[in-house]
Design a protein around this nucleic acid. Structure first.
Lengths: 257, 257
DNA sequence: AGAGGAGTGATTGTATGCAATCGTCCCTGT
DNA sequence: ACAGGGACGATTGCATACAATCACTCCTCT
């Protein structure tokens, strides 16, 4: 697996978190962190005071958050933090499966085309190197039993795979969803991703090998396993929309916590 | 296929076009209609004058359009109408395939659950009736050889199927994409959807029958065929990211126009 | 002649103030 | 006591005005 054909090692692990936080980022962060609880009523004025800005940037931020699904807004009435998305969890996982299976397959195909010289994507190697760094960082956190950062790293890896697939649209959609995913996991203090973590390296391996179908199958299993684990942990009563997932949940429920 | 278990016939064919157009809708409409051509430079001030509003609503609209992919904006420099998305077409179709295969499968499963009495979704019948109306309307347009409205009707049907699937997330994402799809097709005055049109009724039939895998397979073939047709018509030179599609395009290219 | 830097113009980003709209409460009439 | 209507308060929607930032040009120095 030759990772760096031209440039030197390069650190660049920090996954774009250091931006000069916009109001939208600040509010989203507070929602994900639980400072602004779901169902809480928020007015433009109160938020403006809270973040010490005018109402105008708050307005823009609310519009953006609304389209991301974090805010429910009604004209002339007010806005609320969207109800906790646990109900949407199964839905969200279904979308992830649909999208990410496709990105994994495409990424592997592009890798194959790359090796055969048919294509030379401009920044394929840069992204691939970032993923490698993220995998290493995740391994370190797992080894240190410091699992909290794994949520963000996990998202970054999945977005990175989407970037490798070369589909700007999928990347954009997945980025939207990733925030909600983080929100879902944020409620879970100790993510059980430790068991699933090693799967990432296997998936990336299949991509490197250029085996599209294997990458797709591995990704499908990965997302599905994550979905089952989530539904089990939260004891969601309504069955999953995917019969296979629903059956697995039902089967494992008594054995689990 | 019993369509109306409780309510009477109901017209409601008009697919939500009559809203009091916001600035964002107005700009998007002009982009899709070609009034604002891709690459054109647009400033907040010029748009404000154009639509006779202040810069504030224009700002919000631009933010929204940016997240929809219609506008490329650089801070302190200006905004441009995003370059013509023909290059993204293949990408867009790939996403559609990933999402819509999933929605078709889920919709069929819900139909099966509905018939067996396991579930009673609140507005399943309403949506199903709207789809029926859309199918009829499309048939009428095809019969009259008036193919222009088919683009919008087509989008509405696909969104309706997503709604039947019960996945709010998929519906939201698909709705975002549908605008871009319309943009793509708008360049094509005479959409060649006439040949593909009857497939919709077959897909809906599979959903009604509760046959998830068949619905999924039909939808996959439908989107793929549409994709091939598009790439052929526009003579896109770069091969599709899907090898099957790329091969089909290559095979049919000489025979076609 | 070329490179560097300051000035200028254009554009975005933000704040404040006012108008429009909607929900709610109280008051009145029956 | 209850229903209906009007007024008030709260909140959003919008316009104007100003500040900050960036790109570009021209001027100067080497």
């Amino acid at each position: 697996m030759p990772l760096s054909p031209d440039e030197p090692a390069l650190a660049a692990v920090v996954p774009a978190v250091g931006r000069p936080v916009s109001v939208q980022d600040a509010i989203r962060r507070d929602i994900i962190a639980g400072v602004l609880t779901p169902g809480a009523r928020v007015t433009e004025t109160s938020l403006a005071q809270r973040y010490d800005v005018s109402r105008v940037p708050v307005r823009e931020a609310l519009r953006g958050l609304e389209s991301e699904g974090f805010i429910d807004s009604r004209p002339h009435v007010g806005s609320r933090v969207a109800p906790i998305p646990v109900h949407d969890a199964d839905d969200l996982f279904a979308v992830r499966e649909a999208l990410e299976v496709s990105t994994a397959r495409s990424a592997a195909r592009r890798a194959a085309a790359l090796y055969s010289g048919d294509e030379s994507p401009e920044d394929w190697w840069r992204i691939r190197r970032e993923i490698a760094a993220l995998l290493d960082a995740g391994d370190a956190h797992v080894a240190a039993d410091d699992l909290d950062p794994l949520v963000a790293i996990n998202d970054q890896i999945h977005i990175g795979i989407a970037e490798l697939s070369g589909s700007a649209t999928m990347t954009r959609l997945l980025r939207q969803l990733s925030w909600k995913i983080e929100w879902l996991y944020a409620a879970d203090v100790q993510p059980r991703g430790k068991r699933l973590w090693p799967e990432h390296r296997v998936i990336v391996g299949a991509i490197d090998a250029g085996d599209g179908e294997r990458a797709a199958a591995l990704m499908a299993a990965h997302v599905r396993e994550s979905r089952i684990g989530y539904l089990l942990r939260y004891g969601v009563t309504t069955p999953s929309s995917d019969p296979v997932v629903a059956a697995a949940v039902e089967e494992r429920r008594p054995a689990d916590g």
